[in-house]
């Protein structure tokens, strides 16, 4: 996959997740970051740091991106969420406008 088509998402602990841009743009916030006309640092570097999102949550989020891309429109499948991370995940979702 070409570098331009991917984006690096970095968690609070410094873990890096390289995901498809298309998948990342499931989040409205990330979409704005990457498409805003001004050329912010994120757009130029192709990486976004989330100092308030922990690694497990970001991982779950990335899984959700791909799941959403594949199934959100139509098929009845479950996206499994462990109950113990639900709250944090919710907050991140609000932040990312997903």
């Amino acid at each position: 996959m070409k570098k331009e088509d991917t984006v690096k998402l970095i968690s609070a602990e410094g873990f890096e997740f390289v995901v498809d841009k298309k998948a990342a743009m499931v989040s409205q916030t990330i979409r704005n970051m990457l498409t805003s006309p001004g050329g912010f640092a994120e757009t130029q570097l192709g990486e976004v740091t989330f100092p308030e999102i922990s690694t497990p949550i970001l991982e779950k989020i990335c899984q959700y991106f791909y799941w959403s891309l594949q199934y959100a429109s139509g098929k009845e499948t479950e996206f499994h969420i462990e109950p113990e991370i639900t709250l944090e995940l919710m907050m991140a979702a609000n932040y990312l406008h997903t």
Binding site: G38, A41, E42, V48
Partner: peptide, 20 residues
């Protein structure tokens, strides 16, 4: 900075988070 065409040094995430 944005009005001065100097936006490239800014982090979108940081600004977004601040406003958030």
């Amino acid at each position: 900075e944005i009005y001065n065409h100097n936006a490239s040094g800014l982090s979108f995430e940081e600004l977004y988070r601040s406003a958030y």
